[in-house]
Amino acid sequence: MVTIEGLKKSFGEVTAIGDMSFNVANHEFLSIVGPSGCGKSTALRVIAGLTEPTAGKVLVRGAEVRGPIKDVGMVFQAPVLLPWRSVLTNVLFPIEMRGERRSKYQAKALELIKLAGLEGFENHAPYQLSGGMQQRVAICRALVSSPQLLLMDEPFGALDIMTRERMGFELQKIWSVGRQTVIFVTHSITEAVLLSDTIVVMSGRPGTIKKIVKVDLPRPRLASMMKDPRFVELAADVRDQIDAQWVE
């Protein structure tokens, strides 16, 4: 689905991404973890075609990315809702941008809103929602057009731990049905191990890949698995990669 080859990205003097290459297979759930400022958000933006790479290239569905890609759902670090729109019309925003009729996707949107636990809030304005609820709206919005590729930039970053865990399981449920290809940026190692097939561990700026960890735990992953020795082992492996950087 996505191939990244020798990706490098500098902003003037600052090299955000030093060198990055990896593949994301169809239906794969891939997480990127790494210290703050190592270029995770930048990498997502390059994959989405929102920023040009300084060197290297990105292929999505076999075609080199030049300009914003299509059939993608993106969740940003912040909810980015339009304040004048209700929950429902915010979720339907991408449909309007595509120039399609809202009514055609209304049922789908309502279903997603229900799934996200926002039933009854369809007509509320964003300011009437908590931060976590807003972020859930953003996730519904990314899913409304049933894209086969999802780019998620710390979608649960602003949530409290309890909600965050629940949302993680919800995402797993959505993914197990929709089988989207997901590139998921997170700070939480547990979250990465719980959700992913593959974890890309990055070094500090300039970001390079430290290690690619394959998560061979069976699915569906349950909360009880977090105590599983294999789970602990994988989490420790990822953690070691990150911790080692502090020592270096």
Binding site: R45, L50, M97
Partner: peptide, 18 residues
């Protein structure tokens, strides 16, 4: 907000619709 514009463009928003 830059993210709003990015989101619009990713959803296929034309300058006129945006």
């Amino acid at each position: 907000e830059a993210d709003v514009l990015d989101l619009s463009r990713l959803s296929g928003g034309t300058p006129w619709r945006i």
